[in-house]
């Protein structure tokens, strides 16, 4: 079981089954991407593997951030799939983190290959537990339709399930219509929702337990 409550304190997150995939939804700048990466960093502090699929940040920035926030990070713990499309192919970052570049967020085959190679690398270095973050589905939705993104999420969840990993995917709730959000949600086991209320940031958790949690400030 994975304890994700160290990144966000909800009871339902304290014991999460391997293979679980979570959607983190919220408006822009509400902290959902930071949460997704925090979940991975917390795991990395315990020696777990981490795979970041990013459509927004440069791979080297992600690697640097992890190194800063997880001082004991072993480079063999981290894989980054950079989908921004400024350079192609795979390489090993200066000091060993595995980085794969994909031509665009719409190149699902390339993303699949990147994830496969990252998982393979982590597995080889003995990291059988780990967490994957995809940041963000909103960018992917500008490259491809919601049907494709829905199926992608489903297929990735199944892959994570067979790897025994947990997944955290982010989506900007302000960028899509309700129907799209409703559909995408259905591809996940649970949902963490962020909102701004009277100047305070709040979150609630749905799906992993029978009842949705209350909104609480985070």
């Amino acid at each position: 079981m994975y304890d994700l409550s160290t990144a966000l304190e909800f009871d339902a997150l304290s014991s999460v089954r391997p293979g679980t995939s979570l959607l983190v939804a919220g408006p822009a700048m509400s902290g959902k991407e930071a949460l997704a990466l925090d979940v991975l960093k917390e795991g990395a502090r315990d020696g777990e593997g981490a795979v970041v699929v990013t459509t927004n940040d440069q791979a080297s920035a992600v690697v640097d951030e992890f190194r800063t926030d997880v001082p004991d990070l072993d480079d063999s713990q981290l894989g980054v799939v950079d989908c921004r499309g400024d350079s192609g192919g795979s390489d090993v970052d200066r000091s060993g983190a595995y980085v794969h570049h994909v031509s665009s967020p719409g190149d699902l085959t390339g993303i699949g290959i990147g994830i496969t190679k990252a998982l393979e690398g982590l597995h080889k270095s003995g990291r059988d537990d780990g967490r994957l973050a995809l940041v963000s589905l909103s960018t992917m939705l500008t490259y491809t339709d919601k049907k494709t993104v829905f199926k992608l999420c489903h297929i990735l969840s199944s892959r994570l399930d067979s790897a025994g990993y947990v997944g955290v995917f982010t989506i900007d709730s302000g960028a899509h219509d309700d129907q799209t959000l409703q559909v995408i949600k259905q591809a996940f086991d649970g949902l963490v929702e962020f909102r701004e209320q009277n100047g305070a940031r709040q979150a609630r958790m749905m799906g992993l337990s029978s009842q949705a949690s209350d909104w609480k400030e985070v």
Partner: peptide
């Protein structure tokens, strides 16, 4: 039925099919 994506080749080919 994880048969659909039982291994790495399945996983990648299934994603390719989506694109």
């Amino acid at each position: 039925s994880l048969g659909g994506i039982g291994d790495d080749a399945d996983f990648i080919a299934t994603l390719r099919g989506l694109s």
